[in-house]
Computed example of a mutant assay.
Amino acid sequence: MRKTFQLHVEGKNRDRVLDAVKHEIRKYIKRERRRDLPEGADFWDFDCRFGRTKEDAAVAHLSALTGLINGVAAEGGAQFYVEILAKPGKRTPRPAGQAPQGGADDLGGDEEDVV
């Protein structure tokens, strides 16, 4: 998806246009994730770019897109550009002996011995 979204549409409420844009982006991502994975791939990864125009678009993380869109809307911007390209991804195995981060074994808190 490579698209410039207009936030000022004649005769439409700006908040509703913003919600419709976010919905369209989420719908695209869900549709891409449903596609069949190529051989050897574990998941669909996304390369994203975001900016006010296509020329000044910078690399952004997929999870940060909603915040960036909200930032443009809060500043009163008239438009923004989003580029989301799906690519197959492969998970890398965790090195032996490395504990999972934030998993069920991670109790948080102090490292005291409990007897």
Rank of each mutant, 00 (worst) to 15 (best):
T92D: 13
G11P: 00
G108L: 04
E83F: 05
A58E: 15
L68I: 09
E55G: 02
T4D: 01
I84D: 03
L7N: 06
L18T: 07
N13G: 08
D15M: 07
A78F: 07
R31P: 01
A96F: 06
I25D: 05
R31I: 03
D45A: 14
T92W: 02
T92A: 10
G77Y: 04
K3P: 04
A96I: 00
V114N: 01
A96S: 11
M1R: 04
R91L: 14
V72Q: 09
A64C: 03
R34W: 04
G109E: 07
F50L: 02
D56R: 01
Q98S: 07
A20N: 15
E10A: 13
V17T: 11
K30L: 13
A96Q: 10
Y81C: 07
K3Q: 14
N70G: 05
E10V: 08
R2K: 13
V82H: 08
V82R: 02
H61R: 15
G71E: 10
G71R: 05
D47K: 12
L65R: 00
L7G: 08
V21D: 11
E75C: 03
R31F: 15
L85M: 13
D19Q: 08
V72N: 04
G40D: 10
V17K: 01
G51T: 05
K30A: 14
G67L: 02
R35H: 09
D105V: 05
E111T: 04
R35A: 14
P38N: 08
P100A: 14
F43Y: 10
R94G: 05
D105P: 10
G51M: 02
K27D: 15
A96K: 11
L107D: 13
V17Y: 09
R34K: 13
N70W: 00
L7Y: 02
P93C: 03
G67T: 06
A78L: 10
V115E: 14
K22E: 06
H23L: 12
F5N: 10
T4M: 08
R2A: 11
A64W: 04
F5C: 03
P88I: 08
L85A: 15
V59L: 11
A74D: 09
R26K: 14
